Amino acid sequence: MFDRTTLGLLAATCMTALPAAAQEYSWTPDRPINIIVPWSAGGSTDQVTRVVAPIIEEALGTEVVVVNQPGASGSTGTAAALDAPRDGYTWTANAIANNATYAVTGLVEDTTIDDYHIYLHVANVPLVSVNADSEYQDFNALLEAMETGSVTVGTAGVNSSGGMALAAIREGSGTELEGARMITYDGGNPAVIAAASGEVVATTQLAVEQTEMIRAGRLRALTVLSDEALEVEGIDPVPPITDFIPDFEVAADYFGVFIPVGAPQEVYDTMDQVWEDHVMNSEALKTYATDRGAVFLPSYGDAALERAMPVVISEACARVTRGEAVLDPSEIGIDCPEEG
């Protein structure tokens, strides 16, 4: 038997264990929320979304389902999220530079970053790694082979972080790197596995997709696309690409969850508060970032957009430089700096 004091303590404990949504938030979902990840399972977007989804689920007291819908450099799933009813129950996840520039490349027409309410969580950096049995011991050796030899590079496609990283290396090196041949996969995880298995020589996908394979001794990291070395527990420090290409331009690659506009305002008000209350101080997300080589940087709304605009501008304008643009970025509110 319990006395009244014990019963009171149990009741208080149960009350605090109830989902916060019923007590704190203006929106209480009455069915599961779907987050469409437009890449295959195991890649960078999928990984971090599966860390964030349970945080949201616990806060709202409703199921949050991660749905992988890969294809066409992430544009298939993104279009599906935009085409879904604007009721607050279908979201998407991605690198913000992708959602902001799909229209520039024509992969998703008539869309801009203004089509979403933005919720960012981590920043990611690409790594250049080779199969552990590869002859290339440092980035200079690989770069020379990319210029004069034949190097297959696994990525998740031209619009993926790995594809954009390879394009940036081409630009930064000042050569076409005609010996580098990109092999595309449905996501970052398959691309990394291809490099680890020897199906391709190298990969330029994100650190979070590669760290486990590097720890396992199946990949050798040569450089990180950053101006600082990458230091992750269990891995030797990875030198920054600026050690090899001093004037290489670096812009942080921010990832997040995006809710299409048009839902009831209470959806966004609630998610703003959930982000503030739970995501921005999440120990689970901090641990993920530290373990995988990402940077814990949650933000939302205007602050998130301001933080991410350098990478949005960089990627949109790079599309023009590379001849990949079918739409001038200025038509969707992105002004490219004048050359010279």
Rank of each mutant, 00 (worst) to 15 (best):
A303K: 07
V295S: 05
A263N: 03
S314R: 08
T175C: 15
G42K: 03
T204N: 00
R220A: 14
I214D: 04
P310L: 04
P126A: 12
I313M: 08
M15F: 12
P298T: 06
T204S: 12
E58H: 11
V151L: 10
E306Y: 05
P85S: 06
G301C: 08
W27N: 07
V108E: 01
D138L: 14
T45M: 00
V311R: 02
D247R: 13
M182P: 04
L305T: 14
D269G: 13
E58N: 12
D269L: 08
G88W: 02
V153D: 13
T321E: 11
V125S: 10
Y268A: 13
V201D: 15
P70L: 08
V122C: 06
R50C: 15
V312Q: 00
V261F: 02
A84E: 01
T45S: 13
L142K: 01
Q265C: 04
S150F: 11
N68I: 06
G188R: 03
T112E: 00
D227T: 12
A304P: 09
T5P: 03
Q205C: 07
A191C: 04
G106R: 08
G8F: 05
F296Q: 01
T287L: 05
R170K: 09
L60D: 12
E63R: 15
V64C: 02
Y89K: 06
N34R: 07
P85N: 08
F296R: 00
D335C: 05
T290C: 06
A123D: 06
A221Y: 00
Q47S: 13
R307K: 15
V52C: 02
V37T: 13
W39Y: 11
L305W: 03
F296A: 04
P337D: 06
Y268R: 04
A165I: 10
A93P: 02
